[in-house]
Design a protein around this nucleic acid. Structure first.
Length: 839
RNA sequence: GCGGACGUGGCGGAACUGGUAGACGCUGCAGACUUAAAAUCUGUUUCCCGUAAGGGAGUGCGGGUUCGAUUCCCGCCGUCCGCACCA
């Protein structure tokens, strides 16, 4: 009688065994091919959620599989441990951010360990510890010396009550999310990293990332936003504050003869100059600046302008004057903050021209319509031929662009340029719980880097969160230091670094973590780039772009011979669960509702409940499932199995009770196969074939990260084994099955491995080898179709000749009946596949 | 608005390069074992007609290419995601 697999006992036992043996510690000096498998490290919020479980399970399967296929695997784990929630907790619960964070890390580490991940815990790191952020400070100073760090005034969202800077997403309807105070735009001196220096390289580098999802590459491409165009100067009819020219940027220099106005942004210096002398202009500028910046605001915002009364001269015809407007739809921080409007070929300009009754001249002919007078309100921005444009007439858009740029450059009033949407990376945060920026401000010497032998600049522990504002700034002593250069009293920088800096190089520190340097070059290069990086698509742009930038910066400084940090990237889907909403709009957890006939009602009170959509698990929608009790009940392997089953990993995985129970049943079924295995005699060719096809198929699917398909293939094999009679083949299949499930259900596999008296650990075992001779069937099923419709199937030896297949097909009873004596018009035979009779 | 992805049974999904649509799992239904339940096992589960043999329809909708289309092409519809007045 087969026993039951008892995960409670087995999980802990094997986890301890792996731990004691340091099974998953990566050897930097190993001679084997190296494989670096990494999942995005978590923020230590306090609890692991199902999304983490799914993410880390995927990486774990790959890591374990790589070990079994002869690789030395680096699969580390750490904590993205700086950031706002710790400060919020400090304010709300009166607990020090460090204490809160470290307690969370301890709790989450325990949770992760219960899932039996093949992690090298000896390399664990937390970004909030001085041994990590001190090395980050060293790197920051290297960047500073290399001229990749600079300081400039920049506008931030300032909460006047909390006295802190808010991220854009913390500003809701113009108010601070916590204080509710109206957020001000304030100029602060901030530190920036010169990511724009690498714009071209970050863009072209995408081309080599053939193991990244196209979607992510496209998002990065759009974010970087390269556009070629012409930057040129209009001559102003009269000088304004000494300026005689107005510089504009356009990507459509070809439409220059369709221009009917010029517009500048509300915060353009020209607008400010006009506002000096006009109360009306001043009002208009103020109105533009107060406008909301949310997506909805922008979409609904009407195109508004203010006629300055100024004009500029058309570059190709000085007496042709264009009016200059201040317009609310022109952005100061793109291009030059000034544009020329071509209503016929740009919708925004069209809207504006129709409102202010400006000319709309056609300069690109769409088809045969070449009238200068443009009717309608829909601008034409498609392809066409230039018309009404003098020397450009008849040219294509591309040729005309080149011609105008050439003339501008010849005549010296403009030049072809490239503009980027990408901005430099502002890294200053006016907060406590982050990496202190290792700079000292001296009256005499300016900003001076902290000498490296004085690193780390450690956060003070004795801080209070009673009063709003940056605790570092109001700490009584911390910021007062002497200038390292001249020795005079000076002031420490009290801003800390954006936490995206912490995650921009942690994967390097995992590969190599000496005490006295950020990393050892040779060790880091031995592992990098990360072979497979797995995480959520929400990091598709910022984190991944910053990490690519940081790696390039190290490369440029000669510190690392790697430019792309992540060779392979995979973005996994979310774990979702159904939602339920009561009549008053409040959310109910799935455990609080039940089905009454066709309708859903609350268990408590029986109120009717509306089933909502299946959505990402979130506390606010009350549809989360805590992994801990699930692991208690079903064990790590069943949870892991469910995370891998059914849904393709890039898609969302709907959590369900039935699903986890199905996984649990299968784990038990596997155990019954193993435990109840009987030696047998003789071979079972069909089973041998199924086994070897599964060995090859599962390996392929895992390499492909198609875990759902690998799971399905293992199910098929298990079904086949169960149906098979005892034989030597069956015995062998069960023994090999143990290794096939080892990456997914490692505890069960170890148990089975031990049961069969194998040496060592299955975690160290070799992946079974598939016999190529057994991968192909010797008998195939041939479809016989009439006019493409299946009418019969034939079982024939593989490789049967066309003529044989044809005559076999025609001899079939069913086919003869269908044809009813009619002569086939044509017969198509695809060997080993089908015969299609055209009647 | 721009860009992208997706659309297959009651559900999650599978299907190689254009070649038997629905693998595998979940759910449901019927049955076996059991005093009973749990657990387990067997059968069945795309829809329609038919007792059956069998036939017909079918991969969002409409067309096209082809001996043959879930797969390729054109046009719609829907859902989701990203960006968003970027000149």
């Amino acid at each position: 009688m087969a026993s039951r697999f008892n995960p409670k006992a087995a999980d802990a036992r094997w986890q301890k065994t792996w731990d004691d043996a340091q099974t998953f510690a990566a050897d930097n000096a190993a001679a084997k091919p190296k494989s670096y498998v990494l999942e995005m490290f978590p923020y230590p919020s306090g609890r692991i959620h199902m999304g983490h479980v799914r993410n880390y399970t995927m990486g774990d399967v790959l890591a374990r599989f790589k070990r079994m296929t002869g690789h030395e695997v680096l699969h580390p784990m750490g904590w993205d441990a700086f950031g706002m929630p710790a400060e919020n907790a400090a304010m709300e619960k009166k607990v020090h951010p460090g204490e809160w964070t470290r307690a969370n890390i301890a709790a989450m580490r325990d949770q992760l360990k219960r899932l039996g991940f093949a992690l090298d815990w000896s390399r664990e790191l937390a970004t909030c510890e001085p041994d990590y952020y001190g090395q980050e400070q060293a790197l920051f100073l290297d960047l500073f010396e290399a001229g990749l760090v600079y300081r400039k005034e920049s506008a931030v969202n300032w909460d006047p009550v909390d006295m802190t800077v808010l991220a854009n997403e913390q500003v809701i309807d113009g108010k601070g999310w916590r204080s509710g105070a109206t957020v001000e735009r304030r100029k602060l001196s901030q530190w920036f990293l010169k990511i724009t220096d690498f714009a071209e390289d970050l863009l072209s580098g995408l081309g080599e990332l053939d193991q990244w999802p196209d979607k992510v590459k496209l998002m990065q491409e759009n974010w970087i936003g390269k556009s070629r165009g012409l930057r040129f100067r209009f001559k102003l009819s009269q000088p304004v504050t000494g300026q005689t020219n107005l510089q504009v940027f356009t990507t459509r220099p070809d439409t220059i003869f369709g221009a009917s106005f010029v517009a500048v942004a509300a915060d353009h210096p020209l607008a400010a100059a006009v506002a000096e002398n006009s109360a009306e202009a001043q009002r208009f500028v103020a109105q533009c600046q107060s406008g909301g910046t949310s997506a909805a605001d922008i979409e609904s915002a009407e195109k508004l302008g203010f006629d300055t009364g100024l004009t500029v001269a058309h570059p190709f015809q000085p007496e042709w004057e264009l009016p200059v407007y201040i317009a609310n739809f022109v952005l100061m921080d793109y291009g030059t903050g000034a544009i020329f409007g071509v209503p016929a070929h740009d919708q925004r300009d069209m809207d504006f021209a129709r409102k202010y009754d400006l000319p709309v001249r056609r300069v690109v002919a769409d088809g045969d319509d070449s009238e200068a007078e443009f009717a309608g309100d829909e601008a034409w921005s498609g392809e066409g031929t230039l018309v009404n444009s003098r020397f450009l007439d008849g040219m294509t858009i591309e040729a005309a662009k080149a011609a105008v740029i050439e003339r501008a450059e010849e005549e010296g009033w403009g030049e072809g340029t490239t503009e980027w949407r990408l901005r430099d990376w502002g890294v200053s945060r006016q907060r406590y719980w982050g990496t202190p920026i290792p700079i000292i401000h001296c009256e005499e010497c300016g900003p001076v880097g902290v000498p490296k032998d004085q690193l780390p600049v450690v956060l003070p522990e004795d801080i209070d969160f009673e009063t709003p504002g940056n605790p570092l700034d109001r700490h009584p002593t911390w910021k007062h230091v002497d200038c390292p250069q001249c020795g005079e009293p000076a002031r420490r920088e009290t801003d800390t670094l954006d936490t995206f800096v912490d995650s921009s190089w942690y994967f390097i520190r995992f590969a190599s973590q000496p005490d006295d340097a950020p990393f050892d070059r040779a060790e880091a290069e031995a592992w990098l780039p990360v072979g497979q990086y797995i995480g959520g698509v929400e990091h598709a742009i910022l984190h991944l772009l910053y990490a690519r930038f940081w790696t390039r910066a190290l490369n440029r400084m000669g510190m690392l011979d790697v430019k792309e940090p992540f060779a392979g990237l995979f973005t996994q889907g979310m774990v979702t669960h159904e939602t339920y909403q009561a009549g008053d709009g409040s959310w109910l957890s799935p455990g609080e509702v039940t089905k009454d006939g066709e309708d859903w009602v609350a268990i408590e009170g029986g109120e009717p409940v509306t089933p909502g959509r299946v959505e990402k698990m979130s506390k606010s929608k009350k549809n989360t499932v805590d992994p801990d009790p699930i692991i208690d009940q079903y064990g790590a392997d069943a949870v892991r199995w469910f995370m891998l089953s059914d849904s393709p990993p890039e898609r969302d995985l709907p959590w369900s009770e039935a699903g986890i129970e199905g996984a649990w049943r299968f784990v038990q079924r596997l155990w019954r196969l193993i435990d109840g295995n009987q030696p047998g005699e003789g071979e079972d060719k069909a089973l041998d074939r199924k086994l070897h096809q599964t060995i090859a198929g599962v390996a392929e699917d895992i390499e492909d990260l198609s875990f759902n398909k690998a799971v399905a293939k293992i199910h098929e094999l298990a079904n086949a084994i169960e149906k098979a009679d005892a034989s030597a083949s069956r015995d062998a299949a069960v023994r090999i099955l143990v290794r096939l499930v080892a990456p997914m259900a490692p505890h069960l596999a170890e148990e089975g491995w031990a049961q069969f008296g194998e040496q060592g650990l299955v975690a160290d075992a070799q992946w079974p080898e598939a016999d190529p001779a057994l991968l192909v069937e010797d008998e195939v099923t041939i479809a016989v179709q009439i006019n493409g419709k299946l009418r019969d199937t034939l079982s024939v030896a593989k490789g049967a000749g066309k003529a044989d297949l044809e005559s076999l097909a025609l001899a079939s009873d069913k086919i003869m009946r269908q044809l009813d004596g009619a002569e086939p018009k044509k017969i198509i035979v695809v060997p080993d596949r089908l015969v299609n009779i055209v009647a």
